[in-house]
Design a protein around this nucleic acid. Structure first.
Length: 482
DNA sequence: GCCGTTTTCGGCCCGACTGTTTTCAGTCG
């Protein structure tokens, strides 16, 4: 069984969890977590890097010790430290850390006092009223644990960006109507445009706190108020998404937006830079001793630590800070940069509009070209086109093209890549098209080698132009092909 | 456990809210 980067990352995360329960040096724990994150996001395969004699200590956060552990895991599939930790603590105990309200100290106490190490045991202990008897725990804590365990099972962990944006926008519009509210902005992973988000973070600036907190916690989609203070509150919406809201003075808007946007790793890196400059960065601003020197805008926060503005989409501590330091931040693609669309369906297969409707929509977006790419016949459930249907559509496209100015319609197909790597339509038909988009829609679980061979074979066909959705994943629904 | 334009040793980001331990630890973001 080959060891993937993600496997090593998972082992380091588990070690960090167990060390945390054992109350190990917090910085040692952080080192394991940082290395886990780096490995998880590393584009190159560790096994290949090792074969090329790459020195692992060149990776950020990886020193001699962790490099040796990575080699150990790649070679043996496991890690001695993790085996030792498992002798002291049952492996499944780390799942308790994922219950909101339970951290390492409480998990350790639950294990030592009640021998609880699974969710089921935790649930039973809470129902039996045993938890409140542990020193440091009380009736309320026990009730919160019970509720958390019960909702944990049914709760999806992350939500798609597009879905979350709808809920966030509705809430933002509502908050803007509250008297005294000046600005309402979505922050967090939503603002960083991550493909999935775990919760919604909202920043509000207002002349008064109280009306905002009252309005927020009584929003009619709120089903649970998890916490509410003077400047911060957390609720859960009907759709099960958690929302964190922070109310800040207007003068701290930039610093608060930076803090709430994250990512956590990016913020830590920025704070470390500030520290070296003798400054302190928090959500209220950038401080030199007790004097605030920046914080009204995000620009001012970055400026105070000697950096240009870094767009939210890049704030993951994946090299953007180093790039910013030397003036080499990339220019992000803007929606206005898009000149055409090469993957479009109409109601001829599983779309919902006519070609003409799609042309109008493309024109209104300022596109210069658009390819019509229906599914091919193999996808019966979406009325994929056969050769005759496709040829008829080609005639229709020619006809519409003759009436267009300033925009070109292209003839295409999203042709199925069959299990053996052949395409779902013959070359004699495909050669009449402007482009051929190939895609896998079935047999996602072939072996890695077979799947690769299948796709490579398809790409070698003479008229093949573009490979669509290369991994076949559906976010939160179907894992990528491996 | 990592790291170094103050350091090869001594640091390591910062603050809010909750519940319970009557002054603060634990958890979270």
């Amino acid at each position: 069984m080959p060891v993937h980067n993600a496997d090593i990352s998972a082992i380091f995360e588990e070690i960090a969890d167990l060390l945390e329960i054992e109350a190990a040096n917090p910085f040692r724990i952080r080192a394991y977590r940082k290395a886990a994150r780096i490995l998880n996001e590393l584009p190159q395969d560790i096994r290949i890097l090792l074969k090329q004699n790459f020195s692992l200590t060149q990776l950020p956060g990886v020193g001699d010790d962790l490099a040796a552990k990575i080699v150990e895991i790649v070679e043996s599939g496991s890690c001695g430290l993790l085996r030792r930790l498992h002798k002291e603590l049952p492996p499944v105990i780390t799942e308790l850390l994922h219950i909101p309200g339970l951290g390492p100290k409480r998990v350790k106490a639950l294990y030592h006092h009640l021998d609880v190490h699974t969710l089921e045991q935790l649930h039973r202990a809470a129902q039996d009223g045993l938890i409140r008897k542990i020193p440091g725990f009380g009736e309320k804590t026990e009730l919160n644990i019970l509720k958390a365990v019960e909702s944990h099972a049914s709760q999806a962990r992350r939500f798609k960006l597009a879905t979350t944006t709808q809920y966030a926008n509705a809430l933002i519009a509502y908050l803007k109507e509250i008297p005294g509210v000046l600005q309402v902005t979505a922050a967090g992973s939503l603002r960083r445009m991550r493909e999935t988000v775990g919760d919604i973070d909202i920043l509000v600036t207002a002349t008064e706190h109280a009306p905002v907190m009252h309005g927020f916690t009584t929003y009619d989609e709120v089903t649970q108020v998890l916490s509410v203070g003077k400047t911060r509150a957390t609720v859960v919406l009907k759709c099960k998404i958690q929302v964190d809201l922070r109310v800040m003075p207007e003068t701290s808007y930039g610093a608060a937006l930076h803090y709430l946007t994250g990512s956590k790793a990016h913020n830590i890196a920025i704070r470390r830079i500030a520290q070296k400059l003798g400054l302190k960065v928090n959500e209220y601003g950038v401080f030199k001793a007790a004097t605030r020197i920046a914080g009204e805008t995000e620009d001012s926060v970055y400026g105070a630590v000697g950096l240009p503005y870094i767009p939210p989409e890049l704030r993951e501590d994946r090299g953007e800070i180093e790039a910013a330091m030397v003036g080499k931040l990339p220019n992000l693609v803007q929606i206005t940069d898009l000149r055409g669309d090469l993957h479009v369906h109409t109601k001829a297969s599983d779309g919902s509009d006519s070609i003409q409707d799609m042309v109008e929509a493309a024109k209104s977006l300022g596109l210069e070209y658009m390819a019509i790419t229906e599914h091919s016949r193999h996808l019966v459930m979406v009325h994929g086109l056969d050769a005759n249907g496709l040829l008829r559509q080609c005639d229709e496209i020619d006809q519409i093209n003759s009436t267009l100015s300033g925009m070109t319609l292209l003839k295409g197909i999203e042709v199925d890549i069959l299990e053996d790597g052949s395409l779902d339509l013959p070359d004699t038909i495909l050669k009449r098209l402007d482009l051929v988009v190939g895609a896998v829609h079935s047999k996602f679980n072939l072996s890695r080698a077979k799947q690769t061979e299948r796709i490579l074979r398809a790409m070698e066909r003479p008229h093949f132009t573009i490979l669509a959705h290369p991994t076949g994943r559906l976010l939160e629904n179907r894992p990528p092909m491996m």
